[in-house]
């Protein structure tokens, strides 16, 4: 219990350090100016979001393979945490888009892909609420989670080809060391916070199942003999 909160505290400390550095010590970028500071929170959430979805994919395979409830709990915790990061990623992405491209939303490859991914994973969470049987819920969560994760790269390439006729992909230039540092610190910060979220969420899911259900079979009855 205490160990779990350590992740949260370390994450909090790191994100404070990283953000203060990113907002003050780091110099403005050559073209984007101060707006580039948004990237210090945007990029780490994006990396971690993908990483957490990768975790969810792994947990889902384990859940399908073993049928053990703890993997279902892990999958759910990872999906929900991933959705939170996904929302952040979209939010910061839009805020970054306005000053740099002049519009809030652009059908950019990464923005589009992450929006569709958000719908995917939110739909899985919605699906879960409609299934009462825990076994079936676990199976269907795992199946949809696996398909969604496999589909994310397909969407990415699909959107990229689709957009390629309109404009050239904007790719970040090589970053200065002063930019790399806050980005790395915040990446670890978001990672620690995400792990904390997942542990908390898993604990909730587990105690919900335990309090809702009688885990132990009923006491064995005496059998009348023939």
């Amino acid at each position: 219990m205490k160990k779990m909160h350590a992740f949260g505290l370390v994450g909090l400390a790191l994100i404070i350090v990283g953000s203060i550095y990113g907002l003050t010590a780091s110099p403005p970028e050559r073209h984007m100016g101060d707006v580039s500071r948004i990237l210090y929170v945007h990029v780490p959430t994006a990396w971690n979001c993908l990483l957490i979805y990768l975790f969810a994919f792994g947990f889902a395979i384990a859940s399908l393979w073993t049928g053990k409830q703890r993997w279902d709990i892990a999958t759910t915790a990872a999906i929900e945490t991933g959705v939170v990061l996904n929302i952040l990623l979209l939010g910061t992405g839009m805020i970054f888009a306005k000053p740099t491209w002049g519009i809030w939303w652009d059908w950019d490859v990464r923005l589009t892909t992450s929006l569709i991914a958000l719908i995917f994973y939110a739909a899985i969470l919605a699906l879960r609420t409609f299934i009462d049987d825990p076994n079936r819920r676990a199976t269907l969560t795992a199946v949809t989670c696996i398909i969604s994760f496999v589909d994310v790269p397909l969407i990415y390439f699909g959107v990229r080809w689709w957009r390629s006729l309109h404009q050239i992909q904007s790719s970040p230039e090589t970053m200065a060391e002063t930019m790399v540092f806050p980005m790395r610190v915040n990446a670890f910060a978001v990672l620690f916070i995400s792990i904390w979220f997942m542990l908390l969420r898993a604990r909730i899911e587990r105690s919900k199942l335990e309090s809702d259900e009688v885990v132990e079979p009923p006491v064995r009855r005496a059998m009348a003999t023939a």
Binding site: D132, D133, P134, D212, E213, V214, P217, P218, R220, R221
Partner: peptide
């Protein structure tokens, strides 16, 4: 077990 109910045991 189905949900909270044990349909079969032992």
């Amino acid at each position: 077990r189905f949900g909270t109910k044990w349909a079969l045991a032992h």
